Deep mutational scan, measured.
Amino acid sequence: HAATELTPEQAAALKPYDRIVITGRFNAIGDAVSAVSRRADEEGAASFYVVDTSEFGNSGNWRVVADVYKA
Rank of each mutant, 00 (worst) to 15 (best):
H1I: 08
H1P: 11
H1W: 10
H1N: 10
A2Y: 14
A2M: 13
A2R: 14
A3H: 02
T4R: 13
T4Y: 14
E5L: 10
E5C: 11
E5W: 07
E5V: 06
E5A: 10
L6P: 03
L6D: 03
T7R: 07
T7N: 07
T7C: 07
T7D: 06
P8Q: 13
P8V: 10
P8L: 12
E9V: 09
Q10E: 11
Q10G: 06
Q10S: 05
A11D: 03
A11R: 05
A11G: 02
A12V: 08
A12N: 12
A13Y: 11
A13P: 06
A13V: 14
L14C: 10
L14T: 06
L14D: 04
K15W: 08
K15G: 03
K15S: 08
P16G: 01
P16Y: 04
Y17M: 04
Y17F: 13
Y17L: 03
Y17Q: 01
D18H: 11
D18V: 09
D18T: 11
D18L: 14
R19Q: 06
R19Y: 06
R19D: 00
R19T: 06
I20S: 01
I20M: 06
I20N: 00
V21Q: 05
V21R: 00
I22Q: 01
I22N: 00
I22R: 00
T23L: 11
T23Q: 08
G24P: 00
G24M: 05
R25K: 12
R25H: 12
R25A: 09
F26R: 00
F26T: 00
F26E: 00
N27K: 10
N27Q: 12
N27M: 09
N27A: 12
A28Y: 09
I29G: 04
I29L: 13
G30P: 07
G30L: 11
G30D: 12
D31H: 06
D31F: 09
D31Y: 05
D31V: 06
D31M: 07
A32V: 12
A32K: 02
A32S: 03
V33Y: 10
V33Q: 05
V33M: 13
V33A: 04
S34F: 10
S34Q: 13
A35W: 07
V36K: 01
V36T: 04
V36R: 00
V36A: 08
S37D: 03
R38G: 07
R38I: 14
R38M: 10
A40C: 13
A40L: 06
D41N: 14
D41V: 14
E43P: 01
E43M: 15
G44K: 06
G44D: 04
A45V: 02
A46H: 14
F48Y: 08
Y49Q: 01
Y49C: 08
Y49P: 01
Y49E: 01
Y49T: 03
V50H: 00
V51Q: 03
V51W: 03
D52Y: 14
D52S: 15
D52V: 10
T53W: 15
T53P: 01
T53F: 15
T53E: 04
S54T: 14
S54N: 08
S54F: 15
S54D: 06
E55Y: 14
E55S: 10
E55P: 10
E55N: 11
F56M: 12
F56R: 04
F56A: 07
F56L: 13
F56E: 13
F56C: 12
G57A: 07
G57V: 06
N58Q: 12
N58G: 13
S59L: 10
S59T: 12
G60T: 05
G60M: 04
G60Y: 05
G60N: 05
G60S: 05
N61F: 15
N61R: 09
N61Q: 13
N61M: 15
N61C: 15
W62E: 03
W62R: 01
W62C: 12
W62Y: 11
R63T: 12
R63A: 07
R63S: 07
R63F: 08
R63P: 00
V64N: 02
V64Y: 02
V65E: 06
V65C: 05
V65P: 00
A66F: 15
A66P: 00
A66S: 02
D67H: 06
D67P: 00
V68N: 00
Y69C: 03
Y69Q: 00
Y69D: 00
Y69H: 02
Y69F: 11
Y69R: 00
K70Y: 11
K70H: 13
A71C: 11
A71V: 10
